[in-house]
């Protein structure tokens, strides 16, 4: 009982703090997913390209970003790159812009690698006979892709993409180590102020869970709708 009362007390006093953290977590996650998906789609195309060097580059990128920790990628971009003169500029009207950009860029580059694999496997799961039939009718590879293969691949891709978004929300907590005021960063702040370590962390966990659970329900709903669409 004591435990829950403390949590309620923390939330009533530091609610704004947590809310700002949630907002930043969602902004970073959303941007990472949007950029990650756009880049990931291009990366998937490169990965399936007929041009060998392009394919090798894409494969190397994907393997590297999936094979190293996000924490290392993030700190490398934020602390490492400025050492060789590469850093994001500060913008006067957005506070902490360069820090924020480092977080978004690291998350996007990381997510891109996973999304590329989701898209590639979604496309390759479509029966090759579908493309063959399109080509035999005189359609070009691009026309076959957009008219026949992609509409079928999207059913494999969208649910997996939804799961990727959920993963990104959770993974985004690492941006707190470079001082971005996300949910985890705010949690640490409140923890340091109140010394209610357990309660602060429990609050963060509950909020993260509410976020991811909501999204996973949304994904499941979208998936059901698509399954339905197949029959109609």
């Amino acid at each position: 009982m004591q435990f829950i009362q403390t949590i309620i007390k923390i939330l009533s006093k530091y609610g704004n703090f947590y809310a700002e953290g949630v907002r930043n977590t969602l902004i970073i996650s959303l941007m990472a997913v949007v950029f990650g998906t756009l880049l990931g789609a291009l990366m998937a195309l490169a990965r399936m390209s007929k041009i060998k060097p392009l394919r090798w580059l894409a494969t190397a990128y994907i393997e590297f970003f999936r094979g190293t920790p996000l924490m290392v990628q993030l700190t490398f971009i934020f602390y490492g790159l400025p050492m060789v003169g590469i850093s994001f500029p500060e913008v006067s009207f957005i506070p902490d812009f360069s820090r924020f950009m480092a977080g978004v860029v690291a998350m996007s580059l990381n997510s891109c690698a996973y999304v590329a694999e989701v898209i590639r496997s979604g496309i390759q799961a479509v029966d090759p006979g579908q493309m063959e039939a399109a080509r035999c009718l005189g359609l070009s590879g691009g026309q076959g892709m957009t008219m026949v293969v992609l509409p079928q691949a999207i059913r494999n891709i969208l649910p997996a993409l939804g799961n990727e978004f959920i993963t990104v929300i959770k993974e985004s907590s690492v941006v707190s180590v470079i001082g971005i005021a996300d949910l985890m960063y705010r949690t640490n702040g409140v923890k340091a102020k109140t010394y209610n370590v357990l309660e602060c962390l429990a609050t963060a966990a509950i909020i993260y869970f509410i976020l991811t659970f909501t999204f996973s329900k949304l994904v499941a709903w979208a998936e059901r709708r698509m399954a339905h669409g197949r029959k109609s």
Binding site: Q130, E132, A133, C136
Partner: peptide, 21 residues
């Protein structure tokens, strides 16, 4: 080749009807 394929209809063992249409 696409223009030539228009002139040559092909029927497959596995039918390969477009599943999304």
């Amino acid at each position: 080749i696409n223009r030539h394929r228009e002139k040559m209809g092909m029927v497959f063992q596995q039918f390969n009807l477009f599943n999304n249409m």
